[in-house]
Design a protein around this nucleic acid. Structure first.
Lengths: 145, 145
DNA sequence: AAATATTTATTGCACATGCAACAAAGTCAA
DNA sequence: TTGACTTTGTTGCATGTGCAATAAATATTT
């Protein structure tokens, strides 16, 4: 009956998951802000454009775990900064056609190595535990379904 | 040389970690908002008060991974709602003495089973993978140090 | 003791966010 | 074709957030 009294936030899985993710994200965001002046939403859009070619806001919303308004605003900032262009998709004029400019491509080329290095740091810290962590994440993200 | 081109956000560990944590947190927050009308910062303060007895803002900041302004505002909302009281600590009048009211205690008594059930759902979904996930999280949180 | 430095909690400010409302474009049905 | 419905992207609004500045209390130094 003291079960409830014994509850400890520091062993509570949702809390711990949130705490790690927050720290990793903050560190990552800080590095990106300092070195490149961009935010995480902006970085996600850039990377998605880089891998996917021409893409609409809707595509990014679906694949990158962001609300459409967040995507829209990130895209506007990137356009203002000269990293992407927005054009109308002529086959469906509701859709935007987001595209990297040469400066955008150049930026991504500089961003990616930093991201990969950051991931490597994480993996190095984890050592053989990476696999377990990734397996757990995969289940929670329902990757299979 | 196509390494950089092959970069895929969906296999990027920091991104995946952030995505899971976000989904878990959103679901958790929604449940708490609907059932009890409180936010995650508020829930953290409540739980910490429940486990720790009388506590200051600073204590919570240190142990619960929240900025002091966030703690302060959560505490003010909880006070307005009648779940906690703020008093001055007489041995050091800079410190607040946060304490659960009877209503606060009653609320926590209702909150905790829901939290524990939620965690159990997660663990059930994970099955034997829980251990790997928890081990990975522990390393990234530097629990040892 | 007096002056200076530090600690604690709150608040003002700028900014990001989610949600709902909206306009424009497209689809579908009759 | 017309009218109702859906989809897409943007924006207004209310709210939450981090950071810096602040006031009050305490600690430290001389």
């Amino acid at each position: 009956m003291t079960d409830a009294n014994a509850f400890d936030l520091n062993t509570f899985l949702p809390y711990r998951l949130n705490a790690v993710a927050g720290r990793i994200s903050r560190a990552f965001a800080e590095r990106y802000r300092e070195e490149f002046g961009i935010s995480i939403p902006e970085w996600r859009v850039l990377v998605h454009l880089h891998q996917g070619g021409d893409v609409s806001v809707r595509d990014i919303e679906a694949r990158v775990d962001m609300e459409k308004s967040k995507v829209s605003r990130a895209a506007s900032r990137l356009e203002a900064a000269g990293y992407i262009t927005k054009a109308v998709n002529d086959s469906d004029r509701r859709l935007l056609l987001l595209r990297l400019t040469p400066q955008g491509e150049a930026l991504v080329a500089r961003l990616l190595p930093v991201a990969i290095a950051y991931q490597e740091e994480m993996k190095a810290k984890l050592g053989p535990l990476v696999e377990g962590l990734e397996a757990g994440i995969a289940v929670l993200l329902d990757d299979g379904k």
